[in-house]
């Protein structure tokens, strides 16, 4: 990790993206004091994690589903956590219910599937009703129901005004969930911007234009500095302009338009473009 400076805002889901080994998990481990940064600091509300007296009441973290003793029951695991931070024991039943684990609360964690372990990890993260939540790959091992459950949970946690940092490899999942994106590549920050802006900067945002005079329109668009690609005789793909600009231009020159359809890049496309850059050029700050 180097030169990474981030502030995660409350009330939003911040998506944390990057190739394997980019430093996502390491960043989250540093925030919670498991790893010490060689220089710099990670603070929560201005304090290092290790200085917080009852950290579970302020920061909930799911960093690794397999972080419970296999011989302990789910209920005992959560009860220990509650006692460690002076949280009422009633809260254990609440988070078990929330995570859909009530029926298996008395089973040993070692017999849990990966999906159940993820749910237990989320129950543990929520036990102190914290304002800050860190979820590292929470949907790993979950069935479609579980994936949907996580998505709704994460959205509602942010809607309650909490700060949520979520990492995932699943772009489609991130597209559904994140408001803000932080993209890491090789320990460097590649992007830190609202979701719409990251997508908007992609060169893959394009407008398809169909016109019987496509060639004429092509020349006028080039004159305005837009990038134009000819597809078929009557079809061109325009990037770097808005539908309004193209429509107005066509109107001024009396060119009939048969189609003017913007196509937004998907998160996956925008992400691939961003991280390809990071691999190709190495260090690159911002976007």
């Amino acid at each position: 990790m180097s030169g990474l400076s981030l502030e995660i805002a409350p009330g939003k889901v911040t998506g944390f993206l990057g190739p394997n080994g980019a430093g996502k998990s390491t960043t989250m481990r540093m925030i919670t004091g498991l790893d010490a940064p060689s220089a710099g600091s990670a603070t929560i509300g201005g304090r290092p994690y290790t200085a917080i007296r009852h950290p579970l009441r302020e920061v909930g973290a799911l960093l690794d589903a397999r972080a419970a003793h296999p011989g302990r029951t789910a209920r005992a695991h959560l009860l220990g956590l509650a006692r460690s931070n002076g949280i009422a024991a009633d809260r254990v039943a609440e988070v078990l219910e929330l995570a859909g684990l009530t029926a298996v609360a008395g089973r040993r964690v070692g017999s849990f599937s990966l999906g159940m372990s993820q749910r237990l990890g989320i129950a543990a993260a929520l036990i102190g009703d914290p304002a800050v939540l860190l979820f590292d790959e929470p949907v790993n091992g979950l069935d479609p129901d579980g994936v949907r459950w996580i998505r709704d949970l994460v959205r509602s946690l942010a809607a309650e005004g909490r700060t949520v940092l979520l990492s995932s490899h699943l772009m489609s999942e991130m597209q559904e969930t994140a408001d803000h994106l932080v993209v890491l590549g090789r320990g460097h920050l590649i992007a830190d911007a609202p979701f719409g802006e990251v997508i908007g900067r992609s060169s893959l945002n394009a407008i398809r234009v169909r016109s019987p005079h496509a060639e004429l329109l092509h020349r006028h668009l080039l004159g305005l500095g837009m990038a134009v690609e000819s597809k078929e005789a009557e079809e061109i793909i325009v990037t770097g302009g808005s539908p309004a600009e193209i429509g107005d231009l066509a109107f001024r020159h009396g060119i009939p338009l048969h189609e003017l359809s913007p196509r937004r890049a998907t998160l996956e496309e925008a992400y691939m473009e961003l991280t390809a850059d990071s691999v190709e050029y190495g260090k690159r700050e911002g976007i």
Partner: peptide, 19 residues
């Protein structure tokens, strides 16, 4: 050592981070 073998040491240090 059961904490290190099972990975629960991470949960423990999340709960009581002062070593």
């Amino acid at each position: 050592t059961g904490e290190y073998a099972s990975g629960s040491i991470r949960t423990t240090l999340h709960s009581v981070p002062a070593r």
